[in-house]
Design a protein around this nucleic acid. Structure first.
Lengths: 153, 153
DNA sequence: ATAAAGTTTCCCATCATGGGAAGGTCAAGG
DNA sequence: CCTTGACCTTCCCATGATGGGAAACTTTAT
C-alpha cells in the first residue's frame, strides 16, 4: 500500500503521515525497493486511531500516550479514563473562555444601534481607559481571570 | 516612555509591541537619540485597544480593521457591529466543536469502568474499524460534519 | 515510448508568542 | 569617574499542526 492509499484509508493526509513518522508518533514505515513507503492494515489502523484522537482534540503528544496505552494489553482502564477526563477539563476551560468572549461581544453588539451613525459602544469599550465593562444588563458577568487569551485559530 | 513602561501600562508585552510594529499593526514608534522607542499616552491607548480586542479573540488582522474603524470618525456603527457579530459566529462554531468533543469524551468515559482492568471503551472507540459511535445512551448525538478538527491549543 | 499520476526529500509559511544571545544605554550608588 | 544592574536594541530560533510547492524519481496506463 502506498502512502496515498493509506492516507485515503485512514483519513490522515500523506503530509501528516510523513510528519507523524518524523516526530516518532508512528514507527518508520517499511520501504520498497523504489524508496516508496509501504503500509499494511495495522499501519492504517494506527493512523485511523490517531485521526480519531485528533478529532477529539487530543494533542499529538497525548496521542502518543494513548497509543502506548492502546498497545499495552495490561493497561488499567483507569489510566485511559483519567487522560480522557483531564482532556475534558482542558476542553471545558477553552469552551468557557470562548463563551465569555461571546457573552461580552453579544452584550456590546446589543448596545450598538448598528446604523449609519458613527457612535459605537463596541469601539468605545475597546478604547476604554480603565477596565472592560461587558454587557451592562445584569446576568452572569464574564470574568477572564488574567493572562493572555492563549490560542485562537 | 520606554517600551517596558508602555508594556506595563497597556498589558501588551514588549516583544509583542515590537512585533505589532513590525507587521504594521501599530505605526513605527518614535525613537530617541539612543535608539530607544518612545511612547506616549496615545500609543498606550492604542495598545490597550489591541489587547482588549485580542482578549475578545479577534485575530490580529481583524484588529487592524477595528483600529481603522476606530480612527475613522465617520465610520458607520453597523460596520463595527457586523464585524463583532461575524466574529461571534466564528466563536460559536469553535465552541460547538469543542462541545461535541466534550460530549463524546464524557459519553465514552462514562462507559469506562476506570479500574485496574484493561478493557476500556475509550480505546476501543478510537480503535474501531468503522465509524465512531459516541455515547450510546440516547441524548443528542454529536455529529462532526466532516473535515479536520482545525485548531486546538 | 510517453504522459500522467504518485512518491521522495527539502524548504518555506502560517499565527501569535516567547526565549535567548550579543551588544548598546541609562540611572543610581560608590 | 566608574561600576553595576536594569533596561533597550536587533537577530535568530522555537512552538504545533498543517499545508504549499519545487526538483527529482517511480510507477502505471495509454
Amino acid at each position: 500500500m502506498n502512502i496515498g492509499d493509506a492516507a485515503k484509508a485512514s483519513g490522515v493526509s500523506a503530509k501528516m503521515i510523513r510528519y507523524y513518522e518524523e516526530i516518532g508518533l508512528v514507527p518508520k514505515a517499511a520501504r520498497r525497493g523504489s524508496g516508496y513507503r509501504d503500509y499494511g492494515e495495522a499501519d492504517v489502523h494506527r493512523l485511523r486511531f490517531i485521526r480519531r484522537a485528533r478529532d477529539l482534540g487530543f494533542a499529538v503528544e497525548e496521542i502518543g500516550e494513548l497509543l502506548a496505552l492502546w498497545s499495552d494489553r495490561t493497561r488499567a482502564s483507569s489510566a485511559v479514563k483519567a487522560m480522557a477526563l483531564s482532556h475534558v477539563e482542558d476542553l471545558r476551560r477553552k469552551r468557557d473562555e470562548i463563551d465569555g468572549m461571546i457573552a461580552t461581544l453579544e452584550g456590546l453588539a446589543a448596545c450598538c444601534h448598528g446604523d449609519d451613525r458613527p457612535d459605537c459602544p463596541i469601539l468605545e469599550e475597546l478604547a476604554t481607559e480603565t477596565a472592560p465593562v461587558g454587557p451592562p444588563p445584569g446576568p452572569p458577568r464574564f470574568g477572564r481571570p488574567g493572562g493572555r487569551a492563549p490560542q485562537r485559530s
